[in-house]
């Protein structure tokens, strides 16, 4: 293990009328982000995914420069090896669950069955997203992200639509995948207690930027 920063960023993002500063330097590989709504948590995930406009500054992840606005560097999303799970899942509406799971360039069909079983979506493979519940969609989105062989998993409130038992299962799947492939994780959640096994550090994002938070403190009961 070394202490080189995994997340190393010094950014300014324009969000309409506001300009939010984002500074984060941490060698933690798995971090949780909490904070009031509207503080820019989802925007932060979009910046890491490479799909957010109007971002200035520098962003390095695990040693590679993804963004350096002064040097004109902006690594396109397809080169970042991102597994992005948006809050509303964003499954492709025109293809069934199986083809959604296989929606990434790196997905290997032989991995679908085991992962679908672990996420309890193996009976849904031929269904279309519009016929799934919110929780099912979230699990398919998580499966799609994991099958894309990401280096960095971005989870936006991934358990919001899941009941507690299901949530435990999904956290279990995520933990084992994260351990197996040494994934880095950025997780946005209000529910720190339950995601604690997934993260090493926790940061609060407010309009002044990031501050480190103790994962066991009472921010966990916000919602």
């Amino acid at each position: 293990m070394n202490d080189a920063p995994v997340f190393d960023l010094d950014l300014h993002v324009s969000l309409g009328v506001r300009d939010i500063p984002l500074q984060l330097h941490t060698s933690a590989k798995r971090i949780a982000i909490v904070g009031p709504s509207g503080a820019g948590k989802s925007t932060f995930l979009r910046i890491l995914a490479g799909v957010q406009r109007r971002v200035r500054g520098r962003l390095r992840f695990a040693g590679s420069t993804w963004l350096d606005s002064d040097a004109g560097i902006h690594a396109p999303p397809e080169q970042r090896r991102i597994g992005w799970v948006p809050q509303d899942a964003l499954l492709f509406p025109h293809v069934d669950v199986r083809r959604n799971l296989l929606g990434s360039r790196a997905a290997r069909p032989e991995r679908v069955h085991a992962l679908a079983e672990a996420l309890a979506i193996d009976t849904l493979l031929t269904r279309f997203p519009r016929h799934l519940s919110g929780g099912e969609r979230q699990r398919v989105a998580i499966g799609r992200a994991l099958l894309s062989e990401p280096a960095l998993l971005l989870l936006d409130e991934p358990f919001a639509a899941l009941d507690p038992a299901r949530r435990r299962d999904v956290v279990g799947v995520l933990s084992s995948e994260v351990d197996r492939s040494e994934l880095c994780v950025v997780l946005v959640s209000h529910d720190l207690d339950r995601v604690a096994p997934l993260v090493d550090r926790c940061f609060t994002l407010t309009e002044c930027g990031f501050t480190e938070t103790n994962p066991t403190s009472d921010v966990t009961t916000q919602d």
């Binding site: 799909v51 492709f92 360039r105």
Partner: peptide, 18 residues
């Protein structure tokens, strides 16, 4: 079309044309 579908596709490793 929600532009995020296209953005998500890019994060899944596909370029602009794909």
């Amino acid at each position: 079309i929600d532009v995020r579908y296209e953005q998500l596709s890019r994060t899944l490793g596909w370029g602009k044309v794909s």
